[in-house]
Design a binder for these strands. Structure first.
Length: 420
DNA sequence: TCTGGGGTCCTAGGACCC
DNA sequence: TCTGGGGTCCTAGGACCC
C-alpha cells in the first residue's frame, strides 16, 4: 500500500513576497491576478479580515485601504523560482514525487514508516522552511484524495503543527465529517450543489453514498473520488510528468480594443510567446487556435466571442510559421466595431518532432530554424518583445495593469535584493 | 471605469465506415 | 408499406484542478 503525502505551501504567493521583504511578516497581504483584476492569494491576516478568494479587486479596494492591507501585483518570475527551490528540496526526501502545481507536491512515503511518518514530515517541513523560507503543511493518507483532506485539516488546526497523519488513524471518519463536501478534491461548485440537494453534506456522507447513483450522475470521475475517500487508491503518483498537450497564451487587456492593427499586434505577440514556449519544451504543434472575446461583465455592449482552429501541416514550432498562422486565423474571425477585452493563442496537439512518422506529401522543411533560436535567446536576455517580426506594430496600449509589483528578486540581476 | 490564466479529463452526439 | 447493427473517430462542451 502506498503512503501518500501532500505537501502544500501555506499562502504561497504571500509567503514568497515575505521571503525578501520581512517587513511584510505579520501584516495582511493580498496578491492580485494579472491586470490587477482579482484577489488570488491572501495571507492569514487578510483571510481573517474576511476578504474572499477570487473577488474582483475594484470592489474591495476601499475596504483594503481602510484595513491597511498590503496590495501586490503577481510576480510570477519570483513565485516560479521559489517553487523550483521548494520542489528540489522536497525531491531529496523520497525517490518518488509528483509536482502537482506551483505550490503543491505529492510524495510517495512508502517504506518510510519506520521513521514514524509524522516525525519525518516535521523534519521535511523544517528543512523546507530553513532552506527556502517557505512554510508548508503536510497531510498523509491512504490515497491522494485523503492526503488532500489531511492537509486541509493540518492547516486548520494549530495543534497539528502543520503535519497530520490520517494513514491508519481511528479518527479518519471523524475527520471526514468535519470536511464540507465541496472541499473534497474533485468536487467543484456544480457537483457540490447537486450533492447537497441529495443531503450529502460532508466528505463522510460522500464516502457512504450509493455508488450506482454516483456513477450515473457524476461519471467515472465522481466514482473514483468516492473510492478514494474509502481508502481505495485510484489515482497514482506520476513521477514522470506527462508531455504537454496544449499551450495557451491569453490575456485580458487593460482597456478594450477595437482597432484591427492593435489586435493584430496582440495576437502576433501571443503567437510568438506561445511558439517560444513550445520550443523550450522541444515540442511542435499540429494545430493552432485563436480566440477573441468581449467582456462578459458588460451586458451593455455588443457581445462577440469567436474562435477558430487551423491545422498546421506539417507540425511546426517555427517562429514565423506560427506567427503567420495566428494572423491568418485573426483575419478570419475579426469583426469591426467590437470592443474586445480578451484574446488568446492556443497551440494544440503538441508532439515531439522526432515522434512524427515521415510524410510523403509534407517532407521535413529544410529551412533552418536558427532565426527562432536567436530570437529566443535575445528575448530571454532582454525581456520578451524586444525583437519581433516586422509586421508587428509596436503597441503597448493593451498591456496589463501591474501597479503593485515587487522586484524579480531572484531572476534578474538588476532587481537583486539589497542588504544595507 | 475596473472581474486572471493555464491546464486536464470525460461524455455525448454526429459523421462515417462496412 | 417495409428502412440494421456495430464500430471508430472527431469535436464541442462541461466539469474539474490550481
Amino acid at each position: 500500500m502506498t503512503v501518500f503525502a501532500l505537501v502544500d505551501c501555506n499562502n504561497f504567493y504571500a509567503s514568497c513576497e515575505r521571503v525578501f521583504q520581512p517587513r511584510l511578516i505579520g501584516r495582511p497581504i493580498v496578491v492580485l491576478s494579472n491586470n490587477d483584476g482579482c484577489i488570488i492569494a491572501r495571507s492569514d491576516e487578510a483571510k481573517a479580515l474576511g476578504i474572499p478568494m477570487g473577488a474582483p479587486y475594484f470592489k474591495f479596494k476601499n475596504y483594503l485601504e481602510k484595513q491597511e492591507v498590503i496590495i501586490l501585483s503577481s510576480n510570477y518570475a519570483l513565485y516560479g523560482d521559489l517553487s523550483n527551490r521548494v520542489m528540489t528540496t522536497l525531491s531529496s526526501f523520497t525517490p518518488k514525487s509528483e509536482i502537482y502545481s506551483i505550490d503543491e507536491c505529492f510524495l510517495d512515503l512508502s517504506g518510510f514508516e519506520h521513521l514514524k511518518l509524522t516525525e519525518y514530515c516535521q523534519h521535511i517541513r523544517q528543512c523546507v522552511f530553513q532552506w527556502t523560507g517557505i512554510p508548508v503543511s503536510i497531510g498523509i493518507g491512504k490515497t491522494k484524495t485523503l492526503s488532500k483532506i489531511s492537509n486541509l485539516l493540518a492547516k486548520k488546526s494549530q495543534k497539528t503543527n502543520g503535519v497530520l497523519d490520517l494513514y491508519n488513524s481511528p479518527w479518519l471518519d471523524i475527520a471526514l465529517q468535519r470536511i464540507a463536501v465541496g472541499d473534497v478534491w474533485g468536487i467543484g461548485r456544480r457537483w457540490s450543489k447537486a450533492l447537497q440537494e441529495r443531503g450529502i453534506i460532508t466528505a463522510y456522507d460522500l464516502k457512504e453514498s450509493p455508488e450506482r447513483w454516483i456513477r450515473q450522475k457524476f461519471g467515472i470521475v465522481g466514482l473514483k473520488t468516492v473510492k478514494e475517500l474509502q481508502g481505495i487508491s485510484c489515482i497514482e503518483i506520476e513521477d514522470e510528468s506527462p508531455q504537454k498537450q496544449t499551450v495557451c497564451i491569453s490575456r485580458s487587456f487593460g482597456s478594450t480594443l477595437t482597432d484591427y492593427l492593435a489586435l493584430k499586434s496582440v495576437i502576433a505577440t501571443f503567437a510568438d510567446m506561445a511558439s517560444c514556449k513550445i520550443r523550450k519544451h522541444g515540442l511542435a504543434a499540429r494545430a493552432i487556435n485563436v480566440f477573441i472575446q468581449t467582456s462578459p461583465f458588460n451586458p451593455e455592449i455588443e457581445q462577440y466571442n469567436k474562435s477558430i482552429t487551423l491545422g498546421l501541416h506539417p507540425q511546426t514550432n517555427n517562429f514565423q510559421d506560427i506567427h503567420g498562422a495566428a494572423l491568418k486565423c485573426l483575419d478570419k474571425i475579426f469583426k469591426p466595431n467590437i470592443r474586445y477585452k480578451k484574446a488568446g493563442v492556443i497551440l494544440i496537439d503538441l508532439i515531439k518532432p522526432e515522434d512524427v512518422p515521415p510524410n510523403l506529401f509534407h517532407p521535413p522543411s529544410h529551412t533552418s530554424d536558427e532565426l527562432s533560436k536567436v530570437c529566443d535567446s535575445i528575448n530571454q536576455r532582454f525581456g520578451f518583445g524586444l525583437i519581433q517580426l516586422g509586421q508587428v506594430k509596436k503597441s503597448r496600449t493593451w498591456y496589463m495593469k501591474q501597479n503593485y509589483k515587487t522586484p524579480s528578486f531572484t531572476t534578474r540581476w538588476d532587481e537583486l535584493p539589497r542588504a544595507r
